[in-house]
């Protein structure tokens, strides 16, 4: 693995002492500028891992190192997009983003902060809606404000917890495109939770597959072998798309449970490149 920007080592979390840990021996690395999606069934601790990365929750064991520094507590270096958008309803769209900007740069005068915020609101395609209250926006627009807010503090890393989970399919597509455009323009490092296999294939460079909890772990790292230029409209014409898709769905349907039953003894994370090196599939990489 290339020199990782973010390294997670042996992370585990248990909520009660007598119960087995939700996840155990979770280790992975994310390189700078990489877009990583994590997929797994409910209850495997995806959100907990994200919260640990965000610094909102403390792990029971293990360390997270970002940019040569241990992650302890929340930081402006990591922007978070929440599943429920978490906009403050008493602020306007602009107010919500300005609140973040002024948290990041407290010394900036008001108009400079506003200008900065407007740039990001425009980036997510909400120009003209700056003075609306969140309650006047649709679900998709709210989530875009959430994304603008997270990007506006120019974090070293972006964490997203199922950001599009509550959106209908059409809106989701539009916002995904928006996100893809921004991420490729800014080379943002992203860690994102999703339940949507297609979304993962569209957005991610690498897809982490988690086995079922308890004692969940990252069983496979699937490298996205589709070209970077893939788009939502055309990617399903590429035969490679189905090879990856089948691999992911097979994992969720069969292997995620089997791996859990096999126990942690076999705790290796395999790197898989579906479609390209079928023969290497069984080759274990530590």
């Amino acid at each position: 693995m290339d020199k990782a920007f973010l390294t997670v080592e042996n992370l585990n979390k248990r909520y009660t002492d007598d119960a087995p840990p939700v996840f155990d021996k979770v280790s992975f690395g994310i390189a700078q500028g990489e877009f990583v999606c994590i997929i797994g069934h409910s209850g495997c601790g995806k959100t907990t891992i994200l919260n640990v990365l965000a610094g909102l929750e403390a792990p029971s064991g293990g360390v997270v190192i970002m940019d040569q520094r241990e992650v302890k507590g929340p930081s402006l270096d990591r922007g978070v997009v929440f599943q429920s958008h978490a906009l403050m309803p008493w602020f306007s769209v602009l107010g919500n983003v300005v609140f973040a900007v002024r948290s990041r740069w407290p010394d900036w005068p008001r108009d400079k902060a506003e200008q900065h915020a407007r740039r990001f609101i425009e980036m997510v395609g909400l120009k003209g809606a700056e003075n609306k209250k969140p309650s006047e926006l649709s679900g998709g627009m709210k989530q875009r404000v959430g994304i603008a807010r997270a990007f506006s503090i120019e974090p070293k890393m972006l964490l997203m917890d199922e950001p599009f989970g509550a959106l209908d399919a059409l809106t989701r597509g539009v916002v995904q495109d928006e996100l893809l455009k921004i991420c490729s323009a800014t080379h943002q490092t992203v860690f994102m939770i999703t339940h949507d296999v297609d979304e993962a294939i569209l957005l991610a460079d690498k897809i982490f597959l988690m086995s079922n909890g308890p004692r969940a772990r990252i069983a496979e790292v699937v490298v996205n072998t589709m070209p970077k230029t893939r788009t939502r409209e055309s990617m399903h014409h590429d035969p490679q798309f189905y090879r990856i898709r089948n691999h992911l769905v097979d994992f969720l349907v069969h292997r995620s449970r089997r791996i859990q039953e096999a126990g942690v003894e076999d705790a290796v994370t395999r790197v898989v490149t579906p479609g390209l090196e079928e023969d290497k599939l069984s080759q274990a990489v530590a």
Binding site: L56, R78, F82, S84, A86, M88, F99, I153
Partner: peptide, 15 residues
């Protein structure tokens, strides 16, 4: 107060 808003404030390191 909703947990989400407090989490936003936390991740933004609001004084």
């Amino acid at each position: 107060v909703r947990r989400d808003w407090l989490n936003v404030a936390k991740t933004l390191e609001v004084a």
